[in-house]
Simulated scan of single mutants.
Amino acid sequence: MSNRRAAAVLAAVVLAALAVAAYALYPALSLAVVGPPSDYERTTVTAYDDGGERLGSVEVRVADDRVKRYAGLSYTENLSADEGMWFVHDDTASRTFVMRGMSFDIDIVFVGANGTVTAIHHAEAPAEGVDGDTLRYGGTGRYVLELPAEWTTRHGVEVGDCLDAAGYETTCAR
């Protein structure tokens, strides 16, 4: 291989690596430069048990792009009793959420495409000096709902129940 061709291949590999790194770092860099998002859409999420009885509802901010999902509740000082964040993904997959920048406990609820609750975690805020990225909570879903701590317990929400989000295709309650 000629030196010129080897240099071209090396340059292409370096450019591809830079593109992948830029894509991966985009949410964190965007938050560092621009700050946290402020233009969230809002909707209502209502919980129903498997018999269709209404368990409760919350008003949520919708995190439907990479920057909003990455920021999550990190820049939020607290949540009122019936407030939360609804994370919207393009597909159903195994996901992991972390407690990055959190200063209060929350419930993390993983939700299938039709609105069925697949996992519930009671996540504690990181202790002082602990990196919230190390506190990891996993589940499978297209949506994830973050709520004030113990909201699911107070309202009797369990795995298998339904979350119906206004404006989304969460049809398990219908």
Rank of each mutant, 00 (worst) to 15 (best):
T118Q: 13
P148M: 07
A24V: 14
A71F: 06
V13E: 00
A32C: 00
G139F: 13
A8Y: 04
R69S: 07
F104I: 08
Y40L: 03
T153Y: 07
A17M: 14
G84F: 08
T44G: 00
S103A: 11
L29V: 15
V117C: 03
V60N: 00
S94F: 11
V33Q: 08
G84V: 06
M85G: 08
C162P: 00
H155T: 08
E124H: 08
A12Y: 02
G138W: 06
D164C: 07
A28T: 12
M102A: 11
A24W: 12
I106A: 04
P37H: 06
V62L: 04
A21F: 14
H121I: 07
H122L: 03
A11L: 15
S2Y: 04
T76Q: 05
P37M: 05
Y168P: 01
S30A: 15
V20S: 05
G141Y: 13
A17W: 05
L73W: 13
V58L: 15
T153Q: 14
Y40N: 07
E83L: 06
L55A: 06
P27C: 11
D107N: 08
G115P: 01
V88R: 15
F97V: 14
S2W: 07
V33D: 06
H121V: 06
V144H: 10
V144Y: 09
Y137W: 09
D105M: 05
R4Y: 03
T134Y: 02
T171W: 01
L147I: 07
E128T: 10
R4F: 05
P148C: 10
G52E: 04
V14S: 02
A71G: 10
T140F: 03
S38L: 04
V34Y: 12
E59Y: 02
A81H: 06
T92N: 12
A16G: 13
S30T: 15
V9E: 05
P27Q: 11
D131E: 12
L15A: 15
E59T: 14
G52L: 04
P148N: 08
L79W: 13
V88N: 12
T44P: 00
V34L: 11
H121Q: 04
D90H: 12
L31E: 11
G112P: 01
T152M: 01
A165I: 03
W151T: 06
L25T: 08
D82W: 02
V144N: 08
D49Q: 06
R69E: 08
E128P: 08
V117G: 04
R136W: 02
G51Q: 14
G138P: 06
H155C: 01
S94P: 10
P148E: 09
G112N: 13
G56F: 09
V111R: 03
R95Y: 15
D133M: 12
P27L: 12
V130S: 04
R142T: 14
L15P: 03
D161G: 02
W86Q: 02
V62R: 07
V130Y: 02
A32V: 00
F104Q: 09
G132F: 07
P27Y: 10
L147F: 09
R174F: 02
L25P: 00
